[in-house]
């Protein structure tokens, strides 16, 4: 048990940071916590084989992103199924509020909420790039290590992601005065 505890102590400064990233990604505090726990468990089991070529945080972020992708794909499947159920039954189904009390312990402004919606609607390769660059404020080289891509790819994909976001930002009124040419 001491090895696992050592790992948890070593990674403790990043637990909340990982949680915030997962929350940004998933927008559900309970799911975000579950994902962070899964990530830490998986990492603790593989920590002996971790070759500290990248920092521990970037390593954890890489695992976290993969887990978030998996969860989102599962969510999509669930959503498709629930929609099918509604159509088949032809009745209104009362859906419980998915936010637990814990999930309500923070409040987002309308702008932030829209920003999260916009980033969330980006295709997969761009979403994590934007989050890692603007939310995590990672350097290009760290993003490249985390996502196992080249720095050149990081830069070109970010350029494309910014282009994709431009119209949404304008519609949402985000960056007024900055976006106008």
């Amino acid at each position: 048990m001491s090895d696992i505890q050592n790992f948890f102590e070593l990674s403790a400064p990043y637990h909340e940071r990982l949680f915030h990233l997962a929350l940004n990604y998933l927008r559900d505090a309970d799911d975000a916590e579950d994902v962070v726990q899964d990530v830490l468990l998986k990492a603790s089991q593989k920590y002996s084989g971790f070759e500290e070529r990248s920092g521990i945080y970037t390593w954890l972020v890489r695992i976290l992103i993969n887990h978030c992708h998996d969860l989102q794909r599962a969510r999509k499947r669930r959503n498709v199924r629930s929609l099918e159920e509604i159509t088949v039954d032809g009745r209104e189904i009362q859906i419980a509020d998915p936010k637990s009390d814990h999930a309500k312990n923070y409040e987002l402004s309308e702008t932030s909420s829209r920003l999260m919606d916009m980033v969330g609607s980006l295709p997969e390769p761009y979403r994590e790039l934007v989050l890692l660059r603007y939310f995590e404020e990672l350097q290009y080289k760290d993003i490249a290590k985390t996502l196992s891509i080249s720095e050149g790819t990081v830069k070109s994909r970010l350029n494309h992601a910014r282009k994709l976001l431009r119209s949404s930002l304008e519609e949402a009124g985000i960056g007024e005065g900055l976006l106008g040419n």
């Binding site: 909340e16 915030h20 929350l23 940004n24 916590e33 312990n105 923070y106 987002l108 932030s112």
Partner: peptide, 11 residues
């Protein structure tokens, strides 16, 4: 701004 708001959320 988002970061400052989301940081309030605790485990």
């Amino acid at each position: 701004k988002l970061k400052s708001e989301i940081k309030v959320a605790k485990l």
